[in-house]
Lab assay of single mutants.
Amino acid sequence: SKTSNTIRVFLPNKQRTVVNVRNGMSLHDCLMKALKVRG
């Protein structure tokens, strides 16, 4: 089974995003990807 960790990230202006960290990806990469999608 694939394991994925879901991390809630609290952003300024009362924004919130959820990042799924996959195996083999660093938290930083996942964060940058999530913020790019939002931006």
Results as ranks from 00 to 15, higher is better:
T17F: 07
M32A: 02
R38L: 01
S4I: 09
R38G: 01
P12L: 01
K2G: 07
N13K: 05
F10C: 13
H28D: 11
V37W: 12
K2N: 10
V19T: 15
K36T: 06
R22C: 11
G24D: 05
G39R: 12
K36I: 10
M32L: 13
L11V: 15
T6S: 11
V21S: 12
R22D: 04
L27P: 00
L27K: 02
T6A: 08
N5S: 15
T6L: 01
C30F: 09
L31Q: 00
N23K: 05
T6M: 08
K14Q: 03
L27M: 14
T17N: 01
S1G: 12
N5H: 12
G39C: 02
V18F: 03
S1A: 07
K2V: 03
L31R: 01
K14I: 07
L31M: 12
C30W: 00
C30Y: 08
K14N: 14
N23Y: 13
F10H: 15
R16C: 10
N13T: 15
V19D: 00
K36M: 15
S4V: 07
N5T: 11
R22N: 12
S1H: 14
S26C: 13
S4G: 10
M25V: 11
Q15E: 15
T6K: 08
Q15L: 05
H28P: 03
S4R: 11
G39A: 09
Q15K: 02
G39V: 11
I7N: 00
G24C: 14
C30S: 10
M32I: 06
C30I: 12
K14E: 05
N13G: 02
R22P: 14
V37E: 02
N13C: 02
R8H: 07
G24S: 11
T17P: 00
N13D: 09
M25K: 10
K14R: 11
T3S: 08
H28L: 08
H28R: 10
R16L: 04
V9G: 01
L35Q: 01
N20S: 08
M32R: 02
N23D: 13
V9L: 02
V19I: 11
T6V: 15
R22S: 07
R16G: 03
S1I: 04
S26G: 10
K33I: 03
N5G: 07
N23S: 10
V19L: 13
H28N: 09
N20Y: 13
K33M: 07
G39E: 04
V37L: 05
L31V: 03
S4T: 12
K36R: 09
K33R: 11
V21I: 12
S1L: 08
G24V: 15
K36D: 12
S1Q: 13
N5K: 12
M25E: 02
N23I: 09
K33D: 02
K36N: 15
F10Y: 04
R22F: 02
C30R: 04
T17A: 09
V21G: 13
N23H: 05
R8P: 05
N20I: 11
V19A: 10
L11R: 01
N13Y: 05
H28C: 04
L27Q: 00
K33G: 03
P12A: 06
S1R: 12
Q15R: 01
L31P: 00
K2Q: 15
V18G: 03
V21F: 07
L11M: 14
P12Q: 03
R8S: 08
G39S: 13
T3I: 08
P12S: 01
R22L: 14
K33N: 08
S26N: 11
R16S: 05
V21E: 01
V37G: 04
L35V: 04
V18E: 02
R38Q: 07
C30G: 05
N13H: 03
D29A: 05
R16H: 10
A34V: 04
R38C: 00
D29Y: 14
L35A: 07
F10P: 07
S1C: 11
R8C: 14
N5I: 09
H28Q: 14
R38P: 02
T17I: 00
N23T: 07
R38Y: 07
M25T: 13
T6P: 08
R38S: 01
V21A: 13
A34P: 08
L27R: 00
R38H: 01
P12T: 04
M25I: 06
N20E: 07
F10I: 04
N5Y: 09
A34G: 04
N13I: 10
S26R: 10
S26D: 01
L35M: 05
K33Q: 15
V18I: 11
F10T: 07
L31A: 07
D29N: 11
K2R: 09
V37M: 12
I7L: 13
L35P: 00
T3P: 13
I7M: 03
M25L: 04
V37A: 09
K14M: 09
F10V: 03
K14T: 05
T3A: 15
I7F: 04
N20H: 14
S1P: 10
R8L: 14
V21L: 09
T17R: 07
V9E: 01
S4N: 08
V9T: 15
S1N: 14
K14S: 07
L27V: 15
L11Q: 00
T17S: 08
H28Y: 11
S1T: 15
M32S: 07
P12M: 07
G24Y: 07
N20K: 13
N20T: 04
A34S: 05
I7D: 07
K2E: 10
D29R: 07
N13S: 11
G24R: 03
V19E: 07
N23C: 15
T6R: 14
R22H: 12
K2T: 04
K33T: 02
H28S: 07
V18T: 15
F10L: 09
M32T: 12
M32V: 09
V18L: 03
K36S: 07
K36Q: 09
V19F: 13
G39D: 14
S4C: 10
K2M: 10
N5V: 15
V18D: 03
N5D: 10
K33L: 07
A34T: 05
K14W: 07
D29E: 03
F10S: 12
D29V: 09
S4D: 12
L11P: 00
S26I: 14
S26H: 07
P12R: 00
M32K: 08
A34E: 01
V19G: 02
L31T: 07
Q15P: 00
I7T: 05
K33E: 01
R22G: 11
T3N: 04
I7P: 02
V18A: 13
M25R: 08
V21M: 05
I7V: 08
R16P: 00
D29H: 14
V9K: 07
K36E: 08
R8G: 02
I7S: 00
S26T: 14
V9A: 12
N20D: 09
D29G: 13
Q15H: 02
L35R: 00
G24A: 04
V9M: 03
